[in-house]
Design a protein around this nucleic acid. Structure first.
Length: 482
RNA sequence: GCCAAGGUGGCAGAGUCCGGCCGAACGCAGCGGCCUGCAGAGCCGCCUACCGCCGGUUCAAAUCCGGCCCUUGGCUCCA
């Protein structure tokens, strides 16, 4: 069973075969750091994170590079706003810090490198020079443009014909271009006083002062940190055209090599009719979402739809994800507690549970290999949850070995691959807190034994208000910290 | 106008590439039951599917082919 992936380049599902059978070169088009990250960014991140994790699970050494675009007019536009910073680079640095924090809050595996455009201007200039030398680009008024008519395959990623394309770029630069679809590789800084907002940095180049174009950065950084040909290039669906189309053109024109073997695009998170207006924007930030629903519920929400299918955000779908996550977590907790309670030498065997564990492993693997079908993968884990629950509810004696296998499966797939925090952070503070709760529950048991249920219920309600969910069982009370 | 993706139960959402295990998964909401001092969790059952419409291919179609209707996303910086 091998991994199959959908390649935007061919539009088909193909067997995944990296150039080097041992490793995968992966580049992800990251954010333009002019604002906080929102749930849509989280969708891409979490899916790419799970792809990364699954590739590692399959044994590949994954070299993951994700850029930050820190040179952009949108960043310049915010210079001086509030306390964001007094220059383009200060504003960018501010948001990079915030965005990295958001990424950590989503429990994303770190990339190997997070390159920034401002640190790669020499490489960008070199690349542009190469393109000019080879006749794929021309200088005009201090700016340099890529000549799309010189690159035979232009349009192959987005399936478009040059003649049918709308002009790219601002109105005033169209005058300088030979073909409307030509795009800027280097933009003169002084030739456009209107664009040259104060605070926007410029660099020296063979064509005078200026700034890198909007697409050349990723080509330069991908080649610098990975190779001329990489295995997977990822990004949001919205980047297919023009961004990735242009990356292919300029990269392949410069090197004569294929730029990326597999192009994969995460479909955009939709909002169900309502536009992502600025008034709603705040609510959609990663920060607010994680704070309100928790990392695991957010991951559950985002992974409950395959990366290349449409997903609509709504209060209801998010709430459903919370329930799905809690069901999974409870199942895991029950399995762990049950396994801990059983004598390891027990001879009890439950064929149903053992079969369920085996099927879960098989189905999870098949789902992930089938173009990273995270929805089906989660389904497999929830099926295991049901099997564990049935086993614990219907059996008087537990199957120690099967429970251990179930726990291991939850951890291997749920934690390592899907990135959930099943075992939680059982650190000092949490342990002490648990002991305190235990103490209160003992008191409550005394009240219950004395038939003083009113007081017992009060204690339960008060604990719940503090985020401690109490559950009475045959074996005494149990609790969960929310 | 161009490019692309879709229309499956109350909601949400797999399955469609490689037709039969789909008499349609997993879950959420709701209802009934078991358990329970109560509640919750869990378990069992139901609501619950003529798989957008019409026609074709086939022993067999949600899945393949043709036509039609409708929806959504992108095409400007955008994950």
């Amino acid at each position: 069973m091998t991994l199959q992936v959908t390649n935007t380049l061919t539009g088909e599902r193909e067997p995944f075969e990296p150039q080097d059978p041992e490793s995968v070169l992966l580049y992800y088009c990251g954010l333009t750091v002019s604002d906080f990250a929102h749930l849509g960014h989280a969708r891409s991140w979490v899916h790419v994170d799970v792809m990364h994790r699954w590739l590692e699970h399959l044994g590949y050494d994954v070299r993951h590079v994700e850029n930050f675009t820190d040179v952009n007019e949108k960043i310049v536009a915010r210079v001086g706003e509030d306390d964001l910073g007094e220059s383009e680079s200060e504003v960018a640095r501010h948001f990079i810090t915030e965005v990295l924090e958001d990424m950590r809050s989503l429990n994303l595996l770190r990339a190997e490198v997070y390159p920034r455009v401002s640190e790669h201007v020499p490489e960008i200039v070199d690349l542009v020079e190469t393109l000019v030398e080879k006749g794929y680009a021309y200088e005009s008024n201090g700016s340099v443009y890529f000549d799309v008519t010189e690159f035979e395959d232009y349009g192959k990623l987005s399936n478009q014909k040059i003649e049918e394309m709308e002009a790219q770029g601002e109105e005033d630069e169209r005058q300088e271009k030979r073909h409307p679809a030509d795009f800027a590789l280097w933009k003169a800084g002084e030739a456009h006083p209107d664009d040259a907002d104060p605070g926007g940095e410029t660099w020296n180049s063979p064509w005078g002062e200026g700034r890198p174009g909007w697409h050349i950065e990723c080509s330069a950084m991908s080649m610098t940190h990975l190779d001329e040909t990489i295995d997977i290039h990822l990004g949001g669906q919205d980047l297919v055209f023009p961004h990735h189309e242009n990356e292919i053109a300029q990269s392949e024109a410069a090197t004569g090599q294929q730029f990326a073997k597999y192009w994969m695009h995460v479909r955009l998170l939709e909002t169900g009719g309502e536009k992502m207006s600025s008034s709603l924007q705040n609510y959609f930030t990663v920060r607010n979402a994680v704070e309100e629903f928790g990392t695991d519920a957010i991951r559950m929400f985002l992974l409950s739809t395959a990366y290349n299918n449409r997903q609509t955000y709504s209060e209801e779908t998010l709430q459903e994800a919370v329930e799905r996550w809690e069901r999974l977590e409870r199942g895991y907790d029950r399995a762990v507690e049950a396994a801990d309670s059983v004598d390891a030498r027990t001879k009890v065997e439950d064929e149903d549970l053992r079969t369920a564990v085996a099927e879960t492993r098989e189905e999870f693997t098949a789902a992930m290999n089938d173009d990273f079908n995270t929805r089906e993968a989660i389904t497999a884990l929830l099926d295991l949850t049901s099997a564990v629950n049935v086993h614990l509810d219907e059996r008087d004696e537990y199957d120690y070995q099967a429970l251990c296998d179930a726990v291991e499966t939850f951890e291997e797939f749920g934690e390592d691959v899907l990135g959930f925090a099943l075992a939680g952070d059982a650190e000092g503070e949490v342990e002490i807190l648990g002991d305190v709760v235990e103490l209160v529950l003992n008191v409550r048991e005394q009240e219950r034994d004395a038939g003083n249920y009113e007081r017992a219920d009060e204690l339960r309600d008060e604990l719940e208000a503090l985020g401690v969910e109490v559950q009475d069982t045959d074996d005494g009370p149990t609790f969960r910290l929310e």
